[in-house]
Simulated assay, not measured.
Amino acid sequence: MTQMDQIKHNFIHVNGLKLHVAEIGTGPKVVLFLHGFPEIWYSWRYQMIAVAKSGFRAIAPDYRGYGLSDQPPESEKACHADIVSDLIGILDHLEIKKVFTVGKDFGARPAYLLPLLHPERISGVITLGVPYVPMGPSNFKQHLPEGFYVSRWEVSRLSFISQKPGRAEADFGRFDIKTVVKNVYILFSKSDVPIAAENQEIMDLVQPSTLLPPWFTEEDLDSYAKLYENSGFQTPLQMPYRVKNEEFGIKDPVVKVPCLFIMGMQDYVLKFPGLEAYIRSGTLNQLVPDLDTIEIPEGGHFVQEQFPDQVNQLLLTFLNKHIQL
């Protein structure tokens, strides 16, 4: 049996949906892994195995509408509040009282919402690539051109009645799902922000002959593609790209648990206008007083898959330092 074979797969009924949860390890020390896009539970495979070997229980769900989890009703769409509610529902079902959260990409938002909304359930927070940003309008996407990938993907379908595809759906729809996942992985692995020309589509930024990054295998791509073949991209485009400003009634935006921020210095996200200044100016540390920031010089957007051993060691050092039973 391989280490991957030791990861168990369960389905938990939460909020009227059947959600897929990958799990490995046992005991009261629990780590909840939260994926981004185009990722899935599988993106945490190296970290789950590593923390389980060190005595932790690792849990990695597919969000609603992602991978093997049920699609939400189209009338409900999906938002961060849903994700937080689903995660609390999963923990309640599994009778887990307290966890560390590890969030990557947009998974950083629910990773930080949990200690703000449910502080009694969270021991600490680790995020990769995306720092804590308080709820509300983000300034970090401003001053980017129309061809910025987020701007293209956040345009929703024209109407539920006509069912006409939005620009992203039409762009993605020209290719099979495996090619879409491959192209996004290639694009997001670069250090430049993906920006298309006015009359160019995001998928066309990748030449068909472009190879996958050396740390991402064809087997990995197949695993991702099978999961997205099940879910499609309807919900992943909605959540996170089309979620507008949500109100949570958070009066105090300061995060009061120990936190770790791992930043790949070749991650294109670092080039969002004002983001690096926000991280380095001290503003971030005012909002997250107990924060350690660690840079990985050659790390890109998928740093946990690119440099798994290094990331695993950083996670375990933080977890063992702050675990309280």
Rank of each mutant, 00 (worst) to 15 (best):
P273E: 03
M203W: 03
L91K: 03
D252P: 09
Q200T: 12
A225K: 05
I24M: 04
G300E: 05
R242G: 00
K251D: 03
P119F: 07
L158W: 12
A168S: 01
G55E: 15
F56G: 05
Y112Q: 05
L128S: 14
P115Y: 13
V206D: 00
G299P: 15
E298K: 15
Q71A: 04
V14D: 09
Q286K: 04
L114Q: 11
R109I: 11
G89S: 10
S43K: 01
G173P: 08
D171R: 02
V243Y: 00
P145I: 10
V130N: 08
H20Y: 11
V288H: 04
I126S: 08
P115K: 09
P253T: 14
P28W: 00
V14L: 06
I83P: 00
A60Y: 00
G67E: 07
F307I: 11
D309S: 14
S209K: 00
Y66W: 04
L211Q: 11
W44E: 01
N139G: 11
G274Q: 08
Y241G: 01
I7S: 04
W153T: 13
I122P: 02
Q200Y: 01
T179H: 08
Q310P: 12
I279M: 04
K244Q: 10
F216W: 06
V269A: 09
P236W: 02
E74T: 13
L284R: 01
V155E: 07
R152V: 04
Y228E: 08
V303C: 09
K251S: 06
K244V: 08
R242K: 04
Y66T: 10
A277E: 11
L260C: 10
H9L: 08
R64T: 03
F318Q: 13
I7F: 10
H80G: 09
D290M: 14
V206H: 00
D171A: 00
Y228S: 07
M1G: 02
F248N: 15
R152K: 08
S159Q: 12
V243A: 11
Q71L: 11
E76G: 05
W215H: 05
A111Q: 02
S223V: 12
I40S: 12
L260P: 14
I96W: 00
M239I: 12
I323W: 15
Y268V: 14
W44A: 09
S75V: 14
S54C: 10
M263E: 09
T235I: 06
E229F: 11
G173F: 03
V288D: 01
P134E: 10
I7V: 13
L113R: 05
Q71R: 09
A111S: 09
L187W: 08
S231H: 01
K8Y: 07
G107D: 03
A170I: 08
G16Q: 01
N199T: 13
I294V: 15
N15K: 10
V102Y: 02
P240S: 02
L284G: 08
A111D: 03
G67Q: 05
V30A: 10
N10H: 10
P194V: 07
V254G: 09
E298S: 15
D92P: 04
P194Y: 07
L211S: 09
K321D: 02
Y268W: 06
G65L: 11
L205R: 11
L128H: 12
W44T: 13
I83W: 04
Q313Y: 14
P297V: 13
C79R: 09
P214V: 01
I59G: 14
V311Y: 04
S281A: 08
F261C: 07
P28N: 12
I59P: 10
I262F: 14
V14H: 04
L158G: 12
T217I: 12
R242E: 00
Q200K: 07
P137M: 12
D82M: 04
